[in-house]
Amino acid sequence: METLNTVRPLAENDDRASFDCGRASLNGWFQRNAWRNQMTGVSRTYVLPDPTQPQQIRGYVTLAAGEIRREFLPKSQQRNMPDPMPIVLLGQLAVDVAHQGSGVSKVLLAATFTFAVHVSKTIGSFALVTHPLDDNARAFYQRWGFSTLEPDPQQAMYIRIRDLEASGVQ
């Protein structure tokens, strides 16, 4: 059974070429950009490896620093806040088709919540933000407590760090 402890940073020798989540854009990004971005510090990719073949990747999530405009938040959350607001950006989350429906996304998202809270305690961050690719992804994030930033033209979704902490994420 995979746990948060099995999520680890992407390694150079991980088999990115055979990863297939069913979406060409996510596969291509993982194969072409994940390692380069990791090495340049642009983003960090975390993977859930197969326990018996550690270079085989069951799923990945990519995080980066980011910002959102204060005006995209509900009025009740804008008062006395900086503009722009610092956030952790969840850039991609993908699960190999062979492992979809097996809880891999749950483990990756739980790890992401933990990472986001840790980052917030280290450098400050208001929320974890993502840009869902479609309505299925939007529904997935909504089930996990994300809300849509309605005024945002990209319709990003967010969950506040304080709400993650209140739910017990450390």
Rank of each mutant, 00 (worst) to 15 (best):
P51R: 04
G28E: 09
A94V: 01
L63H: 11
E71T: 04
G91S: 01
N37C: 04
N33L: 05
K121E: 15
K106A: 12
V95M: 07
L48E: 04
R70W: 01
R70T: 06
L108F: 08
R44Q: 15
P82F: 07
M39V: 13
R44K: 14
A98N: 15
D134Q: 10
H99A: 10
K121Y: 05
L90I: 06
S120P: 01
F72L: 04
V104E: 04
Q78S: 08
P49L: 03
K121R: 12
P86L: 09
Q100W: 08
E71L: 06
R79A: 11
L63M: 11
R70Q: 11
Q55K: 07
F72H: 06
V42I: 15
W29H: 00
A24I: 09
L108R: 02
W29V: 00
Q77G: 02
V107L: 10
Y46E: 05
L109K: 06
D50I: 07
T40L: 06
S43G: 05
A110S: 14
A127H: 12
T45A: 05
H131G: 10
T112R: 10
D135H: 15
A111H: 15
T45L: 03
Q56S: 07
N33A: 07
H131R: 10
P54L: 03
T114H: 04
A34G: 01
A111K: 13
P86M: 11
V47N: 00
G59S: 12
Y46T: 02
D83H: 02
M81A: 14
P74A: 12
P51N: 02
T122R: 10
I87F: 04
I87P: 03
I87M: 07
V107I: 14
A116C: 08
K106N: 11
I57G: 03
K121H: 13
H118K: 11
F113M: 14
H131D: 15
V95W: 02
A98W: 03
D96T: 07
L128I: 08
V47M: 02
A94T: 01
L73Y: 11
V95Y: 05
R58Q: 15
L26W: 00
S25G: 07
I87T: 14
F72C: 00
A94C: 03
R44F: 12
P51G: 01
Q38D: 13
A127Q: 13
G91W: 00
P82W: 07
P132Y: 08
V95K: 00
G66D: 06
G101P: 08
G59V: 06
V129N: 08
L93S: 01
A65P: 00
R36Y: 00
R58E: 15
F126S: 10
P74V: 09
F113G: 14
T45C: 05
L90F: 05
V88Q: 06
N27D: 12
Y46W: 13
N37Q: 07
D83E: 05
N37D: 10
L128S: 11
R69V: 09
A94F: 03
P51W: 05
G103H: 07
Q55N: 12
M85I: 15
Q38L: 11
